[in-house]
Write a protein that binds this DNA or RNA. Structure first.
Lengths: 338, 338
DNA sequence: CTGTTAGCGCTTTCAA
DNA sequence: TTGAAAGCGCTAACAG
């Protein structure tokens, strides 16, 4: 291992000089843009190796007008929900030469908008918007500067693609499952009232009840914030107000974890006394005690597909996305009533 | 909301022309580099606003020789362990103008090295290396190109800082806790044999036993891979070989989750029959059933402190890092023996 | 096949 | 205070 010299940034020009050729020749070899005679090529290559030359991407980018970087907007950098999707993005970018800069909108349209502008100012070549809060129009507007693919919204233009999963259907699957098991009084721990996903899942919940001719009891739905603590609080509330129920459908897995803990605290067994179902199928749901029955969202695939789609848009290709749909994963937190 | 015009990237020159000043003047206003008369300033500012001008960062970067970007190397983009640290990084970068590009080394020194080179080629202004696999020398070498701060290793030079927590001490705390509760046969689910953290924690485990004059029984330690599944497998193995034990110390929380599930499957109660302690204190450990007793690593702070330190190095300041130390968090998976 | 010549969009001396 | 001019390091016509 030879040590490099100091902070002497060696440039393409240095290499050209060293190899006794013109800069263009070096560039051509670097990019494979044109044929170069064997001897010059060899001279250049040894020069590059000896001088430890690395082309300056900043300069390349400026010249080419693209940055080989895509921007990812998440809402919470530490949430397992986004983490799983990011893994898909990461794999989608593998060996493409693209890197990603990840920023967080923190579930706030205002902040999200600024992040997007930041990414645009950095000249990212495209943007992936995960569960954004922005208005569709705002997204479309941004998309005129750089291609955007977004999850959780239906969108389709030359430079923007959005796809969303059928939340209502997912919730329907979940609640149907509970009903088929004989449950009649099913609590629903919702998300924030202004959350579109939550509203759609609520609709699914209601539809499933209606299908089965079960009465909808508003007292059985309590609003949470999509996090564990709110699941715990929600169940506590239900008990305080003396509601009767034999099953709970949680808006997402994280909420379900909180529900689970609340039940544990009260000495209520899952699934023996109460059945519990979540939504998302986070990796951790395989290892709750007992493992959580849930609705699987193809998180990883969403990341992967979004990335492929974005790369397509960037390349000016037509792309259409197909996404695996939601499915019920029956594990061990649900069982027949009584 | 006015719509922007097409894809007409408006440049600083356009603004200058529009405002009837020289490009330098516009630049000066943008950067506050020098005083500009009020009228010209106003002219430029209105031009900027009207034309929706956004300076091209690529060009700025090339000129200034820095990219206002830092690189973060993690080992697994989707792991809750890194997620929590990334949150600290994110907060540390807030309002600094820096963005971060996150890449994954996938626990592989080779890949990690390439990622770092990639970041360097992209001219990041500094690098944060989380739980890297690289040799210290390699890190130091890279650090001559750009400042680096690394976790999980002790390092100190002009351009590199590393800090590590005292794994042995943490493990000591964990096992002591178990011993104080009266446990005598304590199983240890380790990490890979070549994992430094794991070895150090193993040392702490042994030290705690020695302190208490307890015999070390190699049959009670089984190797895992730091993930949930291996915790489950490890316990199964222990039962297959008919080991007797009343407590288990898991190398990390994720492993502990697997242990917990294995125990659940066998109808063994935690903590009534067997006590369980983890290491890390992941956010999810608050919501396992029951909540997990563990050794708290200041994950978030590590990210925050690393970022502050790196920004210091980049600014050429002297920085010294102080990190909160490990602490025992007693929750509900440990209890007195018998 | 190869070198010369212009820039990419911005910043920054250097003079005025 | 302001403008002209010279690049940052690289690529891409355009000739030859």
């Amino acid at each position: 291992m030879e040590d490099d010299k100091r902070n002497t940034p060696v440039t393409l020009l240095d290499v050209a000089r060293e190899a006794g050729v013109s800069p263009s020749t070096v560039s051509r070899i670097l990019n494979g843009t044109a044929k170069v005679s064997a001897d010059k090529r060899k001279a250049v290559e040894t020069a590059i190796a000896e001088m430890h030359f690395e082309p300056n991407q900043l300069a390349q980018n400026l010249k080419k007008g693209c940055s080989m970087t895509i921007g990812i907007v998440v809402q919470d950098i530490a949430s397992p929900f986004f983490a799983e999707t990011l893994r898909g993005v990461d794999d989608g970018l593998k060996a493409t030469g693209y890197a990603s800069v990840i920023v967080s909108g923190h579930w706030n349209a205002q902040e999200e908008s600024e992040r997007v502008k930041l990414l645009l100012a950095r000249k990212v070549d495209g943007i992936i918007l995960l569960s954004g809060r922005l208005e569709d129009d705002a997204v479309l507007n941004f998309a005129r500067q750089r291609p955007i693919v977004a999850t959780g919204r239906a969108l389709q233009s030359d430079t923007a693609i959005g796809f969303k999963l059928d939340n209502e259907y997912g919730a329907l699957l979940a609640v149907r499952h509970l009903i088929e098991l004989g449950h009649r009084r099913i609590a629903f721990v919702a998300g924030p009232a202004d959350n579109a996903d939550s509203c759609e899942r609520f609709a699914g919940y209601q539809r499933a009840l209606a299908e089965a001719n079960l009465e909808f009891d508003p007292a059985l739905v309590v609003e949470g914030d999509l996090h564990e603590a709110s699941g715990l609080l929600a169940i506590n509330r239900l008990f305080e107000t003396q509601q009767q129920f034999s099953a709970v459908f949680a808006i997402n897995d994280q909420t379900a974890y909180g529900v689970r803990l609340s039940l544990y605290r009260k000495g209520i067994r899952v699934p023996d006394d109460i059945s519990l179902i979540g939504f998302d199928d986070l990796p951790g749901s395989l290892y709750t005690t007992p493992p959580l029955t849930t609705i699987r969202q193809p998180l990883y695939d969403m990341g992967l597909v979004a990335t492929t789609a974005l790369l397509g848009l960037i390349g000016g290709k037509k792309v259409d996305v197909t996404m695996p749909s939601l499915e019920l994963i029956v594990r061990e937190t649900t069982r027949r009533f009584r």
